[in-house]
Amino acid sequence: MRNMWEKWLGISVCIMVWAEFSILLTSCSSSSDTKRAAPVATQEPVQEIAKADAPETPPVKTLEELVKEYGDLPLIDSHNHDASGSRYRIAEDSWKQYGVDRVVLFGDVSEFSAINTDEVSWKAYQAEPERIIPFTSGINLLDKSGLDMAKANLEKGYFGIGEIAAASTFSPVLSKVEWKTQNPMDGILPQLYELAAKYKVPFLLHIDPPNGAPIAKLEEALDKYPDTTIIFGHGNAYNSPENLDALLQKHPNLYVDFFAGFTAFNPESSNKLEDFVPVMKKFPDKFMLSTDAGYGLPGGETQAIEGMYRLIDALGDRKLAQKIAHDNLYGLISRQPATRTQVDRIKKSDSQTGKTRNYKNLSKVEAGLILSGKEK
Results as ranks from 00 to 15, higher is better:
184 P>W: 02
300 G>N: 11
162 G>K: 04
305 I>V: 15
223 D>Y: 06
60 V>D: 13
7 K>T: 10
54 A>D: 03
341 T>P: 03
181 T>H: 05
53 D>E: 13
113 S>R: 14
207 I>C: 05
79 H>Y: 13
82 D>R: 12
109 V>A: 02
21 F>S: 11
186 D>R: 03
32 S>Y: 13
262 F>D: 04
345 R>P: 11
269 S>T: 00
76 I>M: 02
127 A>P: 04
200 K>E: 08
319 K>N: 14
181 T>A: 09
201 V>R: 00
284 P>E: 09
244 L>K: 04
2 R>Q: 11
3 N>G: 09
71 G>R: 12
81 H>Q: 10
68 K>A: 15
73 L>C: 05
361 N>G: 11
126 Q>I: 07
15 I>C: 14
314 A>P: 06
242 E>H: 10
205 L>F: 11
251 H>I: 02
146 G>D: 04
261 G>V: 05
278 P>V: 09
365 V>W: 00
294 G>V: 03
152 A>I: 06
375 E>R: 11
306 E>N: 15
205 L>Q: 02
81 H>K: 04
46 V>P: 03
82 D>L: 07
132 I>E: 00
226 P>I: 01
120 V>W: 01
114 A>E: 00
205 L>R: 00
151 K>T: 12
38 A>E: 13
327 D>S: 00
90 I>E: 10
115 I>Y: 12
56 E>A: 10
80 N>I: 05
305 I>Q: 08
126 Q>W: 11
96 K>M: 14
192 L>W: 07
82 D>S: 09
28 C>L: 11
1 M>V: 12
135 F>R: 01
282 K>H: 05
218 L>V: 08
18 W>M: 14
236 N>H: 08
199 Y>H: 02
229 T>L: 02
300 G>M: 13
203 F>Q: 00
309 Y>N: 07
163 E>Y: 10
234 H>Q: 13
303 Q>A: 10
45 P>C: 04
202 P>D: 01
155 E>W: 05
